[in-house]
Design a binder for these strands. Structure first.
Lengths: 328, 328
DNA sequence: CAAGAGATGGACAACGTTGTCACGATCAGG
DNA sequence: CCTGATCGTGACAACGTTGTCCATCTCTTG
């Protein structure tokens, strides 16, 4: 900018005015400055600018895994809202690792992002208190923050599984299985809760071997499912607690003679092309991202009200696999 | 930092030294400074730091759509490499819009990112020359840059379709269709070229109604495919030029009585669960991202050699749909 | 013609860091 | 005890902007 000023024969501030289209510059002078800018290929250094103005026009997004389709569409929604507000987006994957989550969040804070959208991996976010006090708007999404009070946008997970299980019950099932992720994960716990509630509502006594929580690797899901399907009281229907479980379940079930009803949690592309088409409880990933981002910018725009908690409904989409009647 | 210095009763620079773990500070002083830091909840402002050091430790990633699984895994790979080099990642979706691409790229440049990974949407990147000259390392991925010489990492698209078509020919097909994306998109043009080459290699005269390039909306693909399957010389096999085409093709073909062989370009989750399982030519999305990011950092680490062009192979994965024999 | 108003332009400090350099204290060797 | 090296520390400028404030110049108006 100094160079531009020298070349145009004007003061530093005048160049700044031209660059920012501030009033008070003769068209003549402005043209001379613009010529110098073009000749030198000058571009304003936003880092320096933002150091001065104390707003970085950027937000940080921390999620579990950018490559997961669910989080990918969530990101995209956050990005769209950020763009509408003229902000750029930092993204980072925590890979379900609390330490990594904290590293990312603090790195973003050190960059002085205006706000954060976080899919928490850990269960203690007290480390964020100084940052939030310092003015970093923060919204949690998909899972609540741990041990601090903060804005959060969630799917109604319990309601979702409740609806899924009720759907199976309505189709005549009583021995219904549930395979969920690690119980430490909030969404997994909530989904289990919904399962229990729906079973209780129907007056069904849940056998311990009907549900399992743990890592959702194909091997483990396969083993767990096999054991649910054998024994004296085999399940006739399964509620799969997440996408990975659903996929493995489809594989396992397609290789078995007796039909088993299946409802998956989380929609996925091509679910309607499988045989049978897979009934799911769908989350609104873009909706989560959009809502979270909107809350963030509302807060940045000054709405300094207390923290709020929004729950988005999950939607049951019947496609076939969830409407299979009990085989015995 | 000023506050910390005051509280600890030391100079500004000493605090800086402690924060950056530079040598030459008595353990005693360091402890005092650290105490002040903790008490004040101080965190270094990286924006200011990077203004001074002229390295932002961040790279910008511009791609077509973050929500697309292909680009999502590409992003993730770029992120992993960036992380290994201690850099943060800005991401933005161009939505296949050249103006938007340019806006994003220039916004990243104004933030003084160290480097850029770009999936180009436009076909003229001369606007980037001043930036590259100014030292912004730039690598294009998935598609080459337009009208400038720059590093690029590509899939061997022509080789991929060539392999796919050859596979169909080996299974007895001669009337083979191809539905591709808009011809202006480099990857689409290359895939068409591979199709033509493979057909020519087999001495097959390609009828004009056997291939079509254009927007890959379900409606259009459906219409085009229907016309390919009718008439005096209907195709007995189809090579789908991208994911969206493949999905629509599966839908259309599953509703028809006569079996039609199908090879899709780009792998997708659950392809093996469909009936029949879908044979694809798979791209290595993480490989593209990883390679591009590695080239970027190699360049940042000083390797100022000429530009290079890397082509990653595409891999044919037979699963069933591509091995269906001709129906007539 | 004097004086006030409005337009135009620039000097300077500040944002929060780090690099450079110089200063004083301590220490080893002669 | 002196000399020179080494160590710890801090003052200061600089990075590239913008906000504040003041100076100048040109009108308009009484």
């Amino acid at each position: 900018m100094k160079d531009v000023a020298a070349r145009a024969g004007v003061g530093l501030k005048t160049v700044s005015r031209v660059v920012n289209e501030e009033p008070g510059v003769t068209p003549d002078t402005a043209a001379r400055v613009q010529a110098a800018i073009d000749a030198l290929g000058f571009r304003r250094n936003d880092s320096a600018r933002l150091l001065r103005t104390r707003r970085t026009a950027s937000v940080g997004l921390v999620l579990e895994d950018l490559a997961d389709p669910f989080y990918a569409s969530l990101s995209r929604a956050v990005e769209d809202v950020a763009r509408a507000h003229g902000a750029l987006l930092f993204t980072g994957s925590s890979t379900e690792n609390p330490r990594r989550e904290q590293e990312l969040v603090l790195a973003f804070c050190a960059r002085r992002v205006d706000g954060l959208v976080v899919v928490p991996a850990g269960d203690d976010h007290r480390y964020l208190v100084p940052e939030i006090d310092a003015g970093v708007a923060t919204v949690f999404v998909d899972r609540p923050a741990g041990r601090i009070d903060a804005d959060v946008v969630l799917t109604d997970n319990a309601g979702g599984t409740r609806a899924g299980v009720a759907h199976l019950i309505a189709h005549g099932h009583r021995r219904i299985g549930f395979i969920g992720d690690q119980p430490g994960i909030h969404t997994a716990a909530e989904r289990l809760r919904g399962y229990r509630e729906a079973m209780a509502d129907a007056g069904i006594d849940v056998r311990p071997q009907w549900y399992a929580m743990g890592p959702t690797t194909p091997q483990r899901v396969q083993a767990v499912l096999a054991s649910m399907l054998s024994g004296p009281e085999p399940v006739t229907a399964l509620l799969a607690g997440n996408n990975r479980v659903t996929v493995t379940a489809v594989r396992v079930l397609s290789g078995r003679p007796e039909p088993v009803a299946l409802v998956g949690f989380d929609d996925f592309e091509l679910a309607d092309l499988l045989d049978p088409p897979v009934t799911v409880v769908a989350q609104d990933a873009p909706g989560l991202g959009r809502t979270a981002a909107q809350m963030l910018f509302r807060r940045l725009d000054g709405a300094a009200t207390g923290t709020s908690r929004v729950e988005l409904p999950a939607r049951l989409i019947p496609r076939g696999s969830g409407e299979i009647p009990p085989s015995s």
